[in-house]
Write a protein that binds this DNA or RNA. Structure first.
Lengths: 235, 235
DNA sequence: TTTAAAAATTGATATATCGCACATTTTGCA
DNA sequence: TGCAAAATGTGCGATATATCAATTTTTAAA
């Protein structure tokens, strides 16, 4: 039985809404009453898997990778979070430790909100409750997608898909109509796709030869997203 | 940098708490006021990915697989849900369609709760809100684990891990101390591990020869869980 | 601008696992 | 209980990907 065409890849929802949007002013003020802001340099760690959470983070500017380390210390990137996204709330809600680590992949400005404030607002705000439930269940769907993609697609197809997703995330840095530059190390890209650096380079070269994209040093500029969609969705 | 030993696999939390436990009687009664019960035969589909949700499901007895289909119709099992677990609430909370499909893997007795009742209780019950947030964020952690496991472990290691997890789920069917029988088709097992049936059979044979387990027809009886833990955690 | 260190790229080889074809066993139904 | 269909198990060639080593390019600091 085939469900071909039921969920074409170009209809997927890559964008994540801000959890804090539409929050009543009263709740928002209470939530941000004791926030402190910090600039994280590229590569700086925000929190570590296994640590107990002291609060949540709100990305005001920049990009953050959420990742897990295997026993040899090789990292696998689970998600790239963009500005205006909330970070580190899973650990508090699950009453457990951080399930993953977070580090900035470019210089980022991030606000810290103490656990007490977050829980206080959570206890009084139906809107925040509803919004978090929506966000979490949406995240579940995205993660489930990634998981089955991993089981069913090869490196070439996975890289194509990640490039499409990353293009959306880097779009916000550029004017509409301008070509979008993905500025990410091959190592991070490899850890996101779940393969080695060398394999990413090889597939990237292949894409370059097909005219799908071009590279300028570390930067990747996508010329033909449709071609990527076809590749990612092929199997 | 190594985090060796930080999260030994035998300390992982495989069990999922019932979302409905500790729910105030009032909320529970309202939630179950219009529930209807149905017996699903082995293999019967409960809901399909992409459909709009009409309500949620509560597994009273049996086991259910949550899965996604690729374009050729090959399924990838994301999760095996046990009795006393809630099903299908992601779609309602995310205000979207089902992100995956669900089907029984053994004869199951399942209650259906209409969407309206679920949302009504959600609007009035802080306990249910809190519990759902906890469950969803826990699910996220479990899924993130699966994802990074996929990226970093081979078929042998993944199968070992899934056998450990399944053993926990099948435990409830047997008396303490009695050997636990995992009764699952090789196809389902392969779709859970993310490989082909043949590869599962090959690794299973290998495990059998090492005295880790034995098989009786379709049934798998684990003799040496510790050995499995070592294998799953090896890399 | 120069230069050293870091990152990216290319090549070659080893290895896991995929997927087909076929044999065997088990299961459930008449 | 017997039988057909379904599920399981086995062998093997093809292939994608991992891994190691060496080279080139880029980056960022002096």
């Amino acid at each position: 039985m085939s469900i071909k065409g039921l969920f074409p890849i170009d209809k997927w929802d890559f964008k994540s809404e801000s959890v804090l949007a539409d929050l009543p002013a009263e709740d928002f003020d209470l939530l941000t009453a004791h926030q402190t802001e910090q600039v994280y340099k590229k590569g700086e760690i925000i929190f570590r898997e296994g640590a107990y959470p002291a609060g949540i983070f709100y990305i005001k500017a920049g990009k953050v990778k959420k990742y897990k380390l295997d026993k040899e210390g090789k990292e696998h990137i689970i998600y790239v979070a963009n500005k205006e996204e909330l970070l580190g709330y899973h650990a508090i809600l699950s009453e457990d430790r951080y399930p993953d680590s977070a580090a900035s992949i470019e210089e980022s400005r991030i606000a810290f909100i103490p656990k007490e404030d977050f829980l206080a607002v959570l206890n009084q705000s139906p809107v925040l409750n509803r919004r978090l439930l929506k966000t979490l269940s949406h995240e579940f769907a995205v993660l489930a997608n990634s998981l089955s993609m991993f089981a069913q697609k090869n490196v070439r197809e996975r890289l194509a898909l990640q490039l499409i997703v990353l293009r959306e995330k880097y779009k916000v840095n550029f004017k509409p109509g301008m070509p979008v530059e993905i500025n990410m190390s091959r190592d991070d890209l490899a850890n996101l796709v779940g393969t080695g650096r060398e394999n990413v380079v090889r597939v990237l070269t292949e894409f370059k030869e097909s005219g799908i994209l071009k590279t300028q040093g570390r930067k990747i500029i996508i010329n033909d997203v449709n071609q990527l969609i076809i590749i990612a969705d092929y199997k």
